[in-house]
Structure formats: C-alpha cells, structure tokens
C-alpha cells in the first residue's frame, strides 16, 4: 500500500465512474438502432443524471432514512467494487485484496441496500420487486462464488488479480474446459446480478414483470440518480471483470504510467464492446417467465459445479 497504488486505484475508479453512463448510453443506442430507431445518442444517460441530481426529491409519507441512505450505500458498494476488481491493473498491493469472497460480499451490501429501498415506502410493487430481487440473488451468489472458485483452482489463489495475471501468462487456461464452463456460469450470473435480459427487462413499464425497476418506483430526483448510477457502475465493473477474464491482454501488470494508460484504454474498449454485444444479444431474447428464472440459474450453478469437478479430475 503506497501512494502510487492509491493513485492507480483512483484512476481505475474514476475511469469506471465516468464510463458507466457512457456504457449505458452505448447499450441503449445499439438497441435503438437494431429496433430501427434513431436513438437518443450515447450521452443521454449523462443528461438524465445531471438533471435528476438537480431536482428536489419527493419522498412518500412514512418513509424512513433508508430511502435517503440506501442509494448512497449502493453507490459506495459499486465504487468499492470498481476499486477491488482488477480492471485497469492487476497490481494486488492493496489495503484489502480483491479476494473473491470480499467481492461477492461487497456486491451483496449494495443489493441488500437496494432491496431495503424497495421495501421502505411500503408499496406493493416495491415489496414485490425486493422479494424477487432477493430470490434471484440467493440463486446468483453461490454461482458467482463457485464460478470464480473454479477459475481460481489452476492458479491456487482466490485473489482475482492473481487469476487474471495467470491467464495473461498462460492463455491456454482461458480455453481449457474448466475455464469455458466457469466463464459460461459467470456470464449468466453477471447477467442476472445486473438485471439484464432474459432475467429482468431493464426497459419495462409493466409493474408485474419488473424486478430492478419495481424497487426504484418510489425513489425520485437525486435518490433515483444515485440508484441508477450505482447500478450502472456495478454493470460496468462486472463487465470489466468478464472482459479481463476472457481477454486479459492490455491489462497493466505494473504501476508505471504507460502500462496504466494502456490498461485504462483497454479496459474502456473491452467494457464498451462487451456492453454493445450484450445489448445486441438482448434484442434477440425475450424475458424469461419469473418461474423459469430459477431453472436458468440452477443451470448456471451446474456449469460452475462441473467446472470445479472437472478441475478436480484433471489435477
């Protein structure tokens, strides 16, 4: 832990905070183009955030401090996530290492804050959204843990930065059966965790099909801005993780200026390309019926479990 690592971590957090609204803008633009629309332009989420931050919140009568604090907790957890994951650099000399258990716990803090915000105003749809969110979460967290655990077996460390470094040194790990199975499970878990199709439809206006949106219905103005920003940042950071695990090239392995700059550029490109691919894939998918979602997530858990089993047999 020295000054240089602090600066590099700050670069990573600021990059991803700036990138998150652009990522969502790119994803919406890709979707709009494929739907035959012109689209609002990639900077629209920035304008939305800027406007929401300037508005006066209206809070329901009887709502508590949770409605105010929850959004900030979500943003903080997403910022911590962006600092912990090896997105720009794999230099692991940090206060807390990006251990897989730490990362999953940080994700959980934000998710619980969001669920409490949904419950706080006491409306039917908010509570329904929170309960669904928790159901999905209970199925996603084990898959995330098991998938990253499977990835950690060839390297012998549960620190995600070390896993990315090992894949950079020996790319044959990426296309090994264990790697492929674990990545498939991880991608499904990330899609469910960030509320994208086919688990949740981020652009729905139908309260009965909502998961993520239903929890935001009672939040307004800057509360809403922080909730949106926190979710976008989480999406960006997790896509960055998937990008670095799939294509580790470009990530900085030292804290010198040039590798860090290259790493930042590579991370930005990877996240935007993955986001565009995800948005294009979403156009071809319909939302799964809520009762089918556990089947999908159980399937991804089985993939992660197989990855662990296969790596036990190989070694």
């Amino acid at each position: 832990m020295n000054l240089v690592t602090v600066i590099v971590t700050l670069v990573q957090v600021i990059l991803f905070a700036a990138l998150a609204p652009l990522l969502v803008g790119v994803m919406r633009q890709v979707r709009a183009r494929l739907e035959g629309r012109a689209g609002a332009g990639v900077w629209q989420p920035w304008r939305d955030l800027r406007k929401l931050l300037g508005k006066e919140p209206v809070r329901a009568r009887g709502s508590s401090w949770m409605l105010r604090a929850g959004p900030l907790v979500l943003v903080l957890s997403s910022l911590v996530l962006a600092a912990l994951l090896p997105l720009v650099t794999t230099v692991a000399e940090r206060l807390v290492t990006g251990d897989l258990f730490v990362v999953v716990s940080v994700l959980l803090i934000g998710a619980v804050a969001l669920a409490l915000v949904g419950l706080d105003a006491g409306t039917a749809f908010g509570g329904m959204g929170s309960s669904r969110h928790m159901t999905v979460l209970a199925l996603v967290e084990p898959t995330l843990l098991l998938a990253i655990y499977a990835l950690s077996i060839p390297t012998g460390s549960s620190d995600i930065a070390t896993i990315v470094e090992a894949r950079l040194e020996d790319p044959s790990i990426i296309v090994s059966p264990v790697g492929l199975l674990a990545m498939a499970a991880l991608v499904i878990a990330v899609v469910a965790e960030t509320g994208r199709l086919p688990v949740d439809n981020p652009s729905t206006h139908l309260e009965l099909t909502m998961i993520h949106e239903a929890m935001l219905l009672e939040s307004s103005a800057r509360d809403l801005a922080w909730l949106e920003f926190g979710s976008w940042l989480k999406l960006g950071a997790l896509l960055g993780l998937v990008g670095n695990l799939l294509v580790p090239w470009g990530v900085a392995t030292s804290t010198d200026a040039l590798p860090v700059l290259v790493g930042a550029a590579a991370a930005g490109v990877k996240v935007l390309v993955l986001g565009a691919l995800l948005a294009a894939g979403e156009v071809l998918l319909a939302k799964l019926r809520l009762f089918r979602v556990p089947e999908l997530l159980a399937g991804s858990f089985v993939l992660a479990f197989l990855a662990v089993a296969v790596s036990a047999m190989v070694s």
Binding site: V58, E213, S220
Partner: peptide, 21 residues
C-alpha cells in the same frame, strides 16, 4: 414508437410519477 421516435430527442416514458418531469 419507432417511426416518430420521440426518444431520439431525449424524451422517455417512465413507469412512475416520481421519476417524471
């Protein structure tokens, strides 16, 4: 809808009055 595409001017329909301007 896609023909007039009001969303291209930064206008969006939202699900809650609390999100609206």
């Amino acid at each position: 809808g896609p023909v007039y595409d009001l969303e291209r001017y930064g206008v969006r329909l939202v699900a809650s009055a609390r999100h609206a301007d």
